[in-house]
Amino acid sequence: MPEKIKVATASLAGCFGCHMSLLDIDERILDLVQVVDFDRTPITDIKKVGPCDVGIIEGGVANAENVEVLREFRHHCKILVAMGACATNGGIPAMRNQFTLEECLRESYVEGMGIENPMVPNDAEIPLLLNKVRPLHEVVKVDYFLPGCPPSADAIWTFLTELIQGKPIAFPYTQIHYD
């Protein structure tokens, strides 16, 4: 039996919708695990990514921790994939780029409704936010993009199967969408 392909996934500034869509491949996941081993993913609960063939990232880059995780993935994964709208162009979280970080934080922690003890949190445990939310390709080299909010299970399936078979990835028209 040939060695299995090692895959890791993570969600940065996303909503886990892409991971839900990944699970939506339903029973096909049984075919997938025949050829794939999962390293760090929200499904396995492995915390640190190790050497992998493929890293799949959901979500954009919104804070210092996102940068760190993304760089670890880039370091350990031969192929890095941006999965979903947020990873590809920042998506919904990047709508905060229409405001300064100060406006965002004041609204959330100082002036918003129902806030007690208003202050911008400054605990060293909390990752600092970037001035703007960025897509992955502005921080590291990305090898493949899988658009959609989320990408459909079929699109994810097309991508994974063709990638594993070493084919050029060709999505049918209905599988490319941005919403």
Partner: peptide
């Protein structure tokens, strides 16, 4: 705009975003 991007097989915006304030 979106339909043409689908038509040409655009999978990502590729460039660095300007994120203009509008």
């Amino acid at each position: 705009l979106q339909a043409l991007a689908y038509y040409t097989g655009m999978l990502s915006p590729h460039f660095t975003h300007f994120f203009p304030l509008r």
